[in-house]
Amino acid sequence: MVYGVLRFINFAHGDVFMLGAFSGVYLNKWLGPALAGLPWGVSLLIILVLSMAICAALGIVIEFLAYRPLRSRPRLNVLITAIGVSLLIEYSGQLIFGATQQPFPQLIPAENLTFTGGLAVTKTQVIVLVTVVALLIGLRFVVMKSRLGLAMRALSLNPTASALMGVNNSVVISFTFGLGSALAAAGGILYASLYPSVEPFMGILPGLKAFIAAVLGGIGNIPGAALGALIIGITETLVGGYSQAVGLPSGYKEGVAFVILILMLLFKPSGLLGKIEREKV
């Protein structure tokens, strides 16, 4: 989404994801006594929303300090800055949170649900899936139906024209960053609920994979990104499962997403659901 509006990869996106997970850890620690009496669903929601708010604010600050001053510069400068911001957050994280892995609190009670046919899933998996779907629907609604969402799409197509319609482009860009960062935070918390350990470099790989999912689905296309992520996830799991059968270590599955990226860029750079941008002149 941020790519769609600003035309550069926000490398720091995965790090905001990490900060989201850490906000979850600390919020749970600090608010623990206050949340103790509440049902787990409510405390989960409170922690989720607060982390999203914290990271939205952080995202807006990052954009304001690091990217805004470079807006009229060549895109490469911004790209390099994004890598710098990413490293800055990672190593500051190491300084502040420590380099060792920390356990992520159990926000969702452990419970196995078994369905007919022998399908067994944990409650965490169900809650994560439901939350993700709800967030995606919410995002799609904001982008497609709201006034700001329309402005976001217009800005991504032609910033000059959107300014001539009376859009304050800076405000819309801040909003986009805030929204993207809030979603990254939610991603961090949900991810850490499934794989309950957090460390300052945890965002790198999910950040890259998220970008690949977006490319696979077609940049700037929300259902496309969700589809891309689903395809990468399933392929990874299948490769992980079958690679052992043919004698390969399952670690190869981490490479799957990148192979998909290379193939996609070679054969269909616009993505599965992406539109080729063209304009009649």
Binding site: L150, R153, N158, S162, M165, E277
Partner: peptide, 16 residues
């Protein structure tokens, strides 16, 4: 705005 519909383009015109 090439990827927006005619209607959405007009809504953008009335943004303010």
């Amino acid at each position: 705005f090439a990827n927006l519909t005619v209607q959405e383009n007009l809504r953008m015109g009335a943004y303010l």
